[in-house]
Design a binder for these strands. Sequence first.
DNA 1: TTAAGTGCAAATTATTTGCAGTAAG
DNA 2: CTTACTGCAAATAATTTGCACTTAA
Lengths: 139, 139
Amino acid sequence: MPTTEAKRMGTSWLENGGVRPTRQRVTLATLLVGDGRHRHVTAESLFDAVRKSGEKVSLATVYNTLRAFSEAGLLREITVNGAKSYFDTDTSNHAHFYCEDTGDLFDVLNSDVAVSNLPQPPEGTEIAKVDVVIRLRQV
Amino acid sequence: MPTTEAKRMGTSWLENGGVRPTRQRVTLATLLVGDGRHRHVTAESLFDAVRKSGEKVSLATVYNTLRAFSEAGLLREITVNGAKSYFDTDTSNHAHFYCEDTGDLFDVLNSDVAVSNLPQPPEGTEIAKVDVVIRLRQV
DNA sequence: TTAAGTGCAAATTATTTGCAGTAAG
DNA sequence: CTTACTGCAAATAATTTGCACTTAA
């Protein structure tokens, strides 16, 4: 049960991205940023969250909306394996841990991880973003 | 037409990984490392190369073999987008440029790109590898 | 009102798999 | 010989799309 406040946050987040706040988008936005915390979701995990919240948004719309949010700069897509896409509500440049055994993806916290000596991009291109994924294996 | 020397290189590369040198594996290995240069391939691109070389290896075997080579440590799999997997004959840690517009993947050359201040991996895990992908956009 | 958004089911795409046949040690 | 490898076709799995319907502005 999303609080009114959570919904308000979701809605203003949408406005931030210049995205039209439809019922389903507000539902998804509220689940994504309603508590002010950052999270990583997949289409499937967000779809599950919708069902648990008692709301209803089709899976296709979840996919399309995640894509739309990303294009609006509200989410950052993270590709860690060919199988599925993750989306991060934290769009700033930061490194991720990815556990291949469990499929867990999470932020590298309070760290100074940085990429040093970024190279010159080739002629005719510019750097859009830099992804750093630290792959873990269980021991 | 692979030279005898190229074939020899491919075969010894297979031995290096402890992989049994079947006809199709030697074909693929020769195409991958026969000229001593590193390259990035996808299952599809390698399959095309096989056809152009006049040899014959089924697409399923190309997929399975790329996976087998990776597991043997002969190749490094690189995931840049949910759509397809790339495989790099250079298994050492190095950064990549990836152009989202063209799908091109290539090495960051002679660079000192490095990830500094690698964080401590979480309890019960160790770092398997660190992927750095510099995403480009055309201007 | 009217262009943008949504839902469903069907289509796509990359990849994997089952299994019968083939070949390497 | 005998176990691993290969090829094919069918199966999967994530994601996208076509299109008729709905809704926000």
